[in-house]
Simulated assay, not measured.
Amino acid sequence: MSDLSILKTLSSTLPVEEQLMPVLFIGHGSPMNGIEDNEFTQAWIEQAQSIPVPKAVVVISAHWFTRGTFVTAMDFPPTIHDFGGFPQPLFNVEYPAPGDVQLAAEIAAMATTTPIELAHDWGLDHGAWTVIRHMYPNADIPVLQLSMDYTKNPAEHYALAKELYSLRKKGVLIMGSGNMVHNLRMMSWEMINGGGYDWALEMNEQFKNLILNEEHERLIDYKNINRAAMNAIPTPEHYLPLLYTLGLQKSGENISVFNDKAVAGSLTMTSVRIG
């Protein structure tokens, strides 16, 4: 059966539940977090333990930035080692979680503002597996990735997220994975284990305040928040996953912040849970 036929004939693969699944934005930081036991990975584990076991996980990762929007649609997405210069044990990691082809087709059918195509040539990049292997170490929950179209503006990404809201009613955990402040060109090795430049700390506080006050329009128009914003977000791919998380929010939901720490001078691990 063709992808188009699947989309035309598909009925909902997951039942609607009464409780909304929380939605997360994860500051994923260094790929080394995939094999380390540290304050950040412990917080990821704690988050997983405090929410219902999801029927599936959908990740919007900073590291799948494409022309057009795609969702992984394979039975077993491969583990992608999309980095270089790290120790061999990191490259040895495999995260053999299943995919969910029917759910991928359902996600594609939800979108009306932009087409979502089924992808068979990607997998789980380090924005996904380095986090999820700590949260769900048994690799027994289906994991999918949704790409971000680099031709779309921030408002369009936010609007697409809103169209996926019903997944939260079906027990699907949706997770944006990036970093609110992410400027690798200005990294400080002296602060690699903690600490941030003044502008990074300033922007981190600005972002948190806007998130907690549900000022989404200002976060969408992040380039005009202040001058420091362009240092914090020189390129958009690590910031846009946050807009997907916010687009999935119902007004008035509980918002909490965790892993609120700057590292390497120009990155923040600050993460958000909604619901």
Results as ranks from 00 to 15, higher is better:
Met1Val: 08
Met1Asn: 07
Ser5Ala: 13
Ser5Cys: 04
Ile6Met: 14
Leu10Asn: 07
Ser11Gly: 10
Ser12Ile: 03
Val16Gln: 10
Met21Val: 05
Pro22Trp: 05
Val23Tyr: 03
Val23Met: 01
Ile26Leu: 14
Gly27Lys: 09
Gly27Ser: 06
Gly29Lys: 07
Ile35Thr: 11
Ile35Lys: 07
Ile35Met: 06
Glu39Gly: 06
Thr41Cys: 10
Thr41Ile: 10
Thr41Phe: 06
Ala43Phe: 00
Trp44Ile: 05
Ile45Tyr: 03
Glu46Lys: 15
Ala48Asn: 06
Ser50Asp: 12
Lys55Ser: 14
Ala56His: 12
Val59Ile: 15
Ile60Lys: 09
Ala62Phe: 09
Trp64Cys: 10
Val71His: 04
Val71Gly: 08
Thr72Arg: 05
Met74His: 00
Asp75Ser: 15
Pro78Met: 04
Thr79Ser: 06
His81Arg: 08
Gly84Pro: 04
Phe86Thr: 06
Gln88Asn: 13
Gln88His: 05
Pro89Glu: 12
Asn92Thr: 12
Gly99Cys: 08
Val101Tyr: 11
Leu103Val: 10
Glu106Gly: 02
Ala108His: 10
Ala108Leu: 05
Leu118Asn: 11
Ala119Asn: 15
Asp121Trp: 12
Ala128Lys: 09
Trp129Leu: 12
Thr130Glu: 07
Val131Pro: 11
Ile132Gly: 04
Met135Val: 11
Tyr136Leu: 12
Asn138Lys: 15
Asn138Met: 14
Asn138Ser: 15
Ala139Gly: 13
Asp140Lys: 12
Ile141Tyr: 08
Ser147His: 12
Met148Arg: 09
Tyr150Arg: 15
Thr151Cys: 07
His157Ser: 11
Leu160His: 09
Ala161Lys: 09
Ala161Met: 12
Lys162Glu: 15
Lys162Gln: 15
Lys162Gly: 15
Leu164Phe: 11
Tyr165Asn: 12
Arg168Leu: 07
Lys169Ile: 00
Lys169His: 13
Lys170Leu: 04
Gly171Met: 07
Met175Pro: 06
Met180Trp: 00
Met180Ile: 15
Val181Asp: 04
Val181Trp: 06
Leu184Gly: 09
Arg185Met: 08
Ser188Leu: 09
Trp189Leu: 12
Gly194Pro: 03
Gly194Gln: 01
Glu202Leu: 05
Phe207Asn: 01
Asn209Leu: 02
Glu214Tyr: 06
Arg218Thr: 11
Leu219Glu: 02
Asp221Lys: 12
Tyr222His: 11
Lys223Leu: 05
Lys223Trp: 00
Asn224Glu: 10
Asn224Phe: 02
Ala229His: 00
Ala229Ile: 01
Met230Thr: 14
Asn231Ala: 03
Asn231Glu: 08
Ile233Lys: 00
Pro234Ile: 01
Pro234Lys: 04
Thr235Ser: 14
Glu237Leu: 04
Glu237Gln: 10
Tyr239Lys: 03
Tyr239Cys: 03
Leu242Met: 11
Leu243Gly: 02
Thr245Ser: 06
Leu246Asp: 04
Leu246Arg: 04
Leu246Glu: 03
Leu246Trp: 03
Leu248Asp: 02
Gln249Tyr: 00
Gln249Trp: 01
Gly252Pro: 05
Ile255Asp: 03
Ile255Val: 13
Ser256Tyr: 00
Ser256Ile: 09
Ser256Met: 08
Phe258Tyr: 13
Asn259Ser: 14
Asn259His: 01
Asp260Gln: 13
Lys261Gly: 01
Lys261Val: 13
Val263Lys: 06
Leu267Asp: 04
Thr270Arg: 10
Thr270Asp: 01
Val272Gly: 00
Val272Pro: 02
